[in-house]
Amino acid sequence: MKTTWIKWSASAVTGLMVAGCASYPDQATTRQMAEKMVFEAFDASLAHMKRLEQDRSQQICSKIGDAKLSREEAAEVVKLARASIQYPASGQLTGDWKAGDRLAHDGSGDRIRSGKTEANKQNGALCQNCHALAPGEINVGNVGPPLTGYGKQRGNSEAIVKYTYEKIYNAWAYFPCSNMPRLGATRHLTPEQVTHMVAYLLDPQSPINK
C-alpha cells in the first residue's frame, strides 16, 4: 500500500505541475478566504469600509504574480476607463498652473488614522511621490517616468491637452492596469483639480517646462 501510494503520488505531483500548479487551493477558494480576511481586518465606519471594495477594473487589475491581462480584459478596463472620464462644467481643460504646482507637490489628503479622515479641504495630487517634476528637484519618486519638460517636448495642441487631461483623470484609459492611480475616476481629484494639473504640465510658464 505504501509503495503504491508513493508511486501514485509521484505521478500525481508531476501531473499537478503540468497542470500549472493550479490545483490546491484553487483560485476561487483562495480568493474567498482572502476577501474574508480583508473585511475582518479593518476597524472602520461603513463609509470607510467602502474603500476596501474593489470595482470591476481593480478586480481585473489585481493579477497575481506574472499572470497576464488577456486582450479582452485589457479592452474592458480601457472601456470602463473611457466611460469614467468627466470633464469640468466649464469645458475648459486647462486651469491654473500655480494651483497645479502646489497640488503636484502635495502628497497628503484623505488618509485615515484612528477613524478620522485627514482634515484637508482638498486632496493633494501625489504626483511628486512618483514622478520627477521641475528640473533640479531632488525629493522626487521614480515609480512613474519623469515629467520634467513634459510641455516643452509636446507643445500644447488641443490633442495634447485632451490626452493629458484624460491621462490624469483615468490613466488606465491609455494603459490598462498601470501603476498610476486613476486619480479623477476614483474621486481623489476633482475635474477642476485635474485642469490645474494639465496647466502645470503644459503651460510654458510652469517650472516643469523651465
Binding site: M33, S62, I64, T186
Partner: peptide, 17 residues
C-alpha cells in the same frame, strides 16, 4: 496563498496593492 493574493489586491482611491 491568501497573503500572495492580498499582496496583489488593488483597492481604494489610489488603486494600490
Amino acid at each position: 496563498k491568501a497573503g500572495e493574493y492580498l499582496f496583489y489586491r488593488r483597492s481604494g482611491q489610489t488603486d494600490f496593492g
